[in-house]
Nucleic acid binder design. Sequence first.
DNA 1: CTTCAAGCATAAGTGACGCTTGGGATGATC
DNA 2: GATCATCCCAAGCGTCACTTATGCTTGAAG
Lengths: 297, 297
Amino acid sequence: MIEARHLRVLRAVAATGSFSAAARELGCTQPAVSQQMKALEASAGTPLLVRTGREMRLTQAGEVLVRHASGILAGLTAAEEEVAAIAGLRAGRVRLVSFPSGSSTLVPTALAALRADHPGTRVSLVEAEPPRSVEMLREGDCDVALAFRYGPGPSEWDDLVVRPLLTDRLVGLVPEGHRLAGAGAVGIGELAEESWIAGCPRCRRQLVDVCERAGFTPRIDFATDDYPAVVGLVGAGLGVAVLPELAIESVRPKGARTVTVEPAVEREIVALTLPDLAQVPAVAATLERLTRAASRA
Amino acid sequence: MIEARHLRVLRAVAATGSFSAAARELGCTQPAVSQQMKALEASAGTPLLVRTGREMRLTQAGEVLVRHASGILAGLTAAEEEVAAIAGLRAGRVRLVSFPSGSSTLVPTALAALRADHPGTRVSLVEAEPPRSVEMLREGDCDVALAFRYGPGPSEWDDLVVRPLLTDRLVGLVPEGHRLAGAGAVGIGELAEESWIAGCPRCRRQLVDVCERAGFTPRIDFATDDYPAVVGLVGAGLGVAVLPELAIESVRPKGARTVTVEPAVEREIVALTLPDLAQVPAVAATLERLTRAASRA
DNA sequence: CTTCAAGCATAAGTGACGCTTGGGATGATC
DNA sequence: GATCATCCCAAGCGTCACTTATGCTTGAAG
């Protein structure tokens, strides 16, 4: 089995014409070169060098090996450099999955910072809601998933790297002319008789849970996953809603007013990745920038 | 420093999708594969594999390395095979130098046998007389030199591999009608008054030495290095000559008769090579065939 | 001719590396 | 829930590779 190390030594010997010179070039002692060549000749099964007096010449087999060596070593260094580029963030790719309101706020900030520091790192972004996004992560379809959960809970993410980014509060949204539009804080019970507009399925379940703890079941007249649509419906006076603060941030609440709801309901927004992937430089850098973007928000 | 061994393991892991399967394929245990991959990831500076449950996936860096691995390993095996072909006498080249009378007798027989056994081995033949041929050998311009010497002598070939092939006697050559043409053995002194035709320079010096030990100086009327010419001149009745037996073998002695001369003068025909080159399969095979050809002659 | 410098080979010692065995944890399957 | 397969970890051990030290050969210089 010919090893790359042997070929490096052989090439140096062929280039310099001497074991000692090759040793100096390789940064080792002359006996090391001597032994390497002996080992290489043993594995080749035939002499590669002819030591005649002071001169050192290649045999035919030696010439053959030197001729191949350049190509092989070139391929090796090319591979090393390409990997080093990825490891050094001069290249690399991160596949990011985010839920919609995250991708419109946190993600752009983080990716801008990432690009500024490491222009070679490419990030692809796909949108997916938490259950699906975590599934994608586990199946290898993405490297980082932005997800959220309501309260620390039992956490089905024990086997994942969980990087908390920020905690997002649910805020109430009422039409401009609503009786509570100017209120500072609103008990959730005060909205028991309202017509409700619900957002995404998980938010909806959360809404239902909160309302039931407050002693009523919300009457949901409209349901949509589209946050701007929810805001629009509220603005048109068709009902009230609770939405994550982050979701409203990127929407102009035309005709709608936000109010603080009591009791406070928070969701935790986290970045997830696989333990192995957390070691990948591009992934680590992405997590880092996401964290920083969250702390500034 | 990425080693070829690492790439072989990585390729096996990527192909089988499992450490255990790769270990079976490589003929080692699974922990060995595990450690190799760990070492490779350490030298790469970034994870190459993602272990997620049962599945084993490549990271981007891993994909890069696998992509390069095929080319690098292909080059390595190509080099190994080419060297193995030389070592296994399926390829290879021997540069042979011979003196003229050797190249017309021993060499053809030996090379025919070599080609019959190892058709892939190519032999190039150049003619040169001993002092020059040995010089060529030492300077790396040939691999095997056929040479001769008169008597074991002081031998300037201590640093060479000397393979004795056969001993060649000098025989007398007289015209058909000569008074000694029918004699069995002829004392060299009986030819003291003859007109001499001399061959190559070294043979000529040998002739002069022998004659002077017999008490006379030969009168050399014709001198040529061309053995057939010598035979032709003798056949034309222009003088007598002594020639190596081997030299006459390939010439039809038209009009000339050979006689045994006393005292017997013998030259030793040897094959020479450098100690290192003697280990080269093609060189060893050539020496072997030359020896056999000489023993059959 | 002797001396000197340079280069290669060899031997012994040391450290690291790589492989194996055995044990434990995890995930998929019946 | 038991079982099988897979992988990681730790310990033990053999081998490999490098270094230092030494001797030998070669070619050049005094």
